[in-house]
């Protein structure tokens, strides 16, 4: 039963049954989110990492007589403007995208935690300094900083990982710092301090541990953000350089030829980026809901 506002009215007697049913629905909903996310992630990862072994056509071989062909039996996703197999390029692009964005997300994660914890556990004047600097950095969109630095040199795989990692941490740093500050003065941590626990020990054994759910959720979001940033950069022609390809690069090629209506060069690459980000966000959301329910 609910009123005009959609709020549940707890009628006597029925209340217990209703809330149990509701809880079951919610649990299924959260679980559904998580399961869908994991399934999507599995599809994306298998496609990119196992794909090369199942579909062995070369992403670099040029079939001059078959340039810019729509999907057919010979080329399941068509060919590009110089007759390269688009499906093979989509797989290679996926491999290149994941091999950069996942390590970059790990680096971002470590940097964000380090900065955030350092700020939270420092004396308050130093925390203020670090936070002012963070405010200023956060005023610059990550992509803009990324463009700035990738203009300096032509990045390879390793440089891209560094570049993405070094430019994406400020958001996480703020979350970690605020959360750690909230935990810092809880009774059990004050007690540990009382018993002589050092700052490093408290950070490692207690603060990081109570923050684990939040950290895990944010780590999954970071992977999605990282895929998005790398794809955007590659789309601008500042990421991985030809002949190597990535999903963003494939989209860019499609856009350059858009007057010829090559939907097969645009839709698959765009959908793969969408699916990877969706997978990361669904897993994050699902975990968030579960951790929230567990608390």
């Amino acid at each position: 039963m609910s009123n005009a506002l959609g709020q549940t009215i707890h009628a006597p007697g029925g209340a217990l049954r209703r809330s149990a049913a509701e809880r079951a629905a919610n649990w299924l909903g959260d679980r559904g989110t998580l399961v869908t996310g994991v399934a999507l992630a599995a599809i994306v990862v298998l496609f990119s990492l196992i794909g090369p072994y199942l579909y062995t056509a070369s992403p670099y071989a040029i079939h001059g007589h078959h340039a810019l062909e729509a999907p057919s039996a010979a080329f399941p996703l068509g060919t590009d403007q110089i007759g390269r197999d688009e499906l093979a390029r989509l797989i290679a692009g996926g491999y290149a995208t994941l091999i950069v964005s996942i390590p970059a997300a790990v680096l971002t994660f470590l940097l964000g935690i380090t900065y955030g914890l350092a700020a939270a556990l420092s004396p308050s004047w130093f925390d203020k300094v670090l936070m002012r600097v963070l405010d200023a950095i956060l005023a610059l969109p990550g992509l803009v900083v990324l463009i700035f630095f990738s203009a300096l040199f032509t990045p390879g795989t390793f440089e891209l990982i560094l570049l993405l990692g070094l430019t994406s941490w400020p958001g996480l740093a703020r979350i970690v710092r605020n959360e750690a500050i909230a935990q810092r003065n809880r009774d059990f941590i004050l007690a540990t301090r009382q018993f002589g626990g050092g700052t490093w020990y408290i950070a490692r054994a207690h603060i990081l541990r109570v923050m684990a759910p939040i950290l895990v959720v944010n780590a999954t979001f970071l992977v999605g953000d990282s895929v998005l940033a790398l794809s955007g950069l590659s789309f601008l022609g500042l990421g991985l350089q030809p002949p190597y390809t990535s999903w963003g690069g494939l989209l860019q090629t499609g856009l350059n030829l858009i007057a010829l209506d090559p939907w097969w060069m645009i839709l698959p690459a765009g959908l793969m980026i969408f699916l990877s980000i969706m997978a990361a966000n669904l897993i994050g959301q699902g975990l968030l809901a579960r951790f929230g329910a567990a608390r």
Partner: peptide, 23 residues
């Protein structure tokens, strides 16, 4: 909202051009 959040702008923009502009 979740789906929209995962859609990259450059993909959406490119699709808009493909449909509204080209097709």
């Amino acid at each position: 909202q979740l789906s929209l959040y995962a859609l990259p702008t450059f993909f959406v923009g490119t699709m808009f051009i493909l449909y509204f502009g080209v097709k």
